[in-house]
Simulated assay, not measured.
Amino acid sequence: MNSIEATVMQLEQALLDPAVRGDAGRLDALIADDFLEVGATGRAFGKAEVVNRLPGETGVVFRARAMQAHVLAADVVLVTYAAERTHQGGTALSLRSSVWVKNAGGWQMRYHQGTAAT
């Protein structure tokens, strides 16, 4: 695995970490201004909602499995994986994909989609 893939997968893992999710400044740095997320419920939202919502989230634990990174261009990487989200004793499984783009400030997530899985 080359360093671009490893770097972006580490950033993806960081966004699953409660400490990073609780830090609005870190979220702001990792998420592109034109970010779009399509959640497992089918609801779409942008950066402002993510940066405002995630720091207030408590008791949520993620475990990623089978994470892969695919370099689409020198400055674009697709990350795919399965995630287990545990909260208040319940666990939900989703298949996830993210598009990361490198700009002057570094790597940022531009798009993310979660699809409910069994």
Rank of each mutant, 00 (worst) to 15 (best):
L11W: 01
E37C: 08
T118S: 15
L16M: 11
V76L: 14
W100E: 05
W107G: 07
H112I: 03
V50D: 09
L15H: 04
M109Q: 10
S98L: 02
A40P: 10
P55V: 02
G90N: 15
V20Q: 03
R96W: 05
G89M: 05
T41N: 13
M1P: 14
R26N: 04
Q108C: 02
A24S: 11
E49N: 11
L30M: 07
L30E: 03
T91C: 10
A48R: 11
V60H: 01
R63D: 11
T58W: 03
G56V: 05
A83R: 13
D28W: 00
R96K: 12
V76W: 07
A69D: 04
Q88D: 15
G25L: 05
I4E: 11
D33M: 06
P18E: 03
A40V: 13
V38L: 10
G114F: 03
A116V: 06
E57I: 05
G59S: 02
A104S: 09
L95Q: 13
V77F: 06
A104M: 05
R43C: 08
D23I: 01
A116F: 05
N103K: 09
V79M: 08
T58A: 13
T86G: 12
G59P: 00
A32T: 03
W100H: 01
G106K: 02
I4P: 08
R65Q: 15
Q108Y: 00
A64L: 05
A104E: 05
H87A: 15
E12M: 09
E37S: 06
L16F: 09
R96T: 03
A73V: 10
A83S: 15
N2F: 11
L36D: 11
A83H: 12
M9Q: 12
V99P: 07
R110G: 13
T91P: 07
G56N: 06
A83F: 11
W100M: 07
D33W: 02
G105A: 15
A117I: 09
G89F: 04
H87E: 15
K47Y: 09
G59M: 00
V79T: 13
M1C: 15
G42H: 07
V77R: 01
D33G: 13
S97M: 09
A73K: 10
M1I: 14
G25T: 02
Q113I: 04
G42F: 08
